[in-house]
Simulated scan of single mutants.
Amino acid sequence: MLAVSAPAERPPEAEPSAASGIVVDGLTKQFGGIYAVRDVSLECRVGQIVGLIGPNGAGKTTLMNLISGTLTPTGGAVYLDGKVVSATSPAACAEAGIARTFQNIRLFKRLTVRQNVEVARITRRRLARGAEKAPSVDEILKLLGLDGIAEAKAGTLPYGHQRRVEIARAVALSPRVVLLDEPAAGMNEQESRALIGSVQLIRDRFGCGVIVIDHDLKFIMEVSEYLYVMHLGEVIVSGIPDEVRHDERVIEIYLGRKARK
């Protein structure tokens, strides 16, 4: 049984001052007198897949917005490769090496799948970062199973395919860390299982870290190497998936009952 961890606990084998990947240190966001995120600390090393789970309203997407520069924190900081990236801007975070997808899909719906990915490649070239390991558009499309629909208009695709296009566009930025907000939403079980392999391939091929939010617990338990559980704006539990799934507080939050002894 995993003991409930303090928010500042780090994953095994990681140093608090780790210079390769994202370190979130005591991040807080207030809206008036309400804490949307409170003293959250977590870490995702380059080459690691980290899951973030919690019920609706737990603060997961707000945390993603803070990490990616969409929101400015009230307190705490976000470090990427040892440098502060919080309280900057989405453009500055992208330039530093943070790419993301959104809970609400934001594609160029009148452009083809290929054109959506090419736009991201143009942005990467402008940033002049990651050129030595930059994947081709064709490689990205094949990696995410989109090569067969590359010339289709993005707005005509089923929801699950649009999710994959968003991920492909994020990967085309050659990021150090990718933030995936509900990537399995709208996918059936077969598509979700295929997505697990795609996320792992992204990590292996491009050597980036991946932080995943999803309500599909089966998906996120299988894809993640380490998990953080949020509730009411705070991290209440962290650990490897097998430990987290048997934690009493996690069971109570999701199922509304105590775990059996």
Rank of each mutant, 00 (worst) to 15 (best):
E189H: 01
I34S: 05
E118M: 13
T72D: 15
V113Y: 08
C93Q: 10
P7K: 08
R176P: 05
F219W: 04
G59C: 11
H161I: 13
P7I: 05
A131E: 15
G130R: 03
L107I: 08
E189W: 00
I213S: 02
L146I: 02
L42D: 13
P241R: 03
D138Q: 14
A36N: 06
R10M: 12
V212K: 01
R126M: 15
G197R: 02
T88M: 08
V210Y: 05
A58R: 04
A58F: 04
K218F: 02
A168K: 00
I98E: 07
S238M: 07
N65A: 11
C208P: 00
Y159M: 14
C44M: 10
A87K: 14
C44F: 07
G145F: 10
T88C: 10
I220S: 08
A172K: 07
V119E: 08
S89R: 04
S41H: 03
A96G: 09
E13D: 15
A184V: 00
G21I: 00
T62F: 12
Q30T: 10
T101N: 00
I105T: 11
E9C: 10
N56C: 03
T28F: 12
Q200D: 02
S41W: 05
R114F: 13
G186F: 07
I22Y: 01
D204L: 03
R176C: 08
V37E: 14
T112E: 08
E234D: 07
T112F: 06
I67T: 03
T28C: 15
V137I: 14
V24D: 14
P11A: 09
R163Q: 14
E191F: 00
V244E: 03
L143I: 04
F219L: 02
S5C: 14
K83L: 12
D242M: 01
L232N: 11
P7N: 14
S86G: 07
P16H: 09
S20K: 09
A154G: 11
I53Q: 01
A6E: 15
G59T: 09
I22K: 00
I34H: 05
R125A: 14
I196E: 00
R10P: 03
F219Q: 03
A8H: 13
N56V: 02
V165R: 06
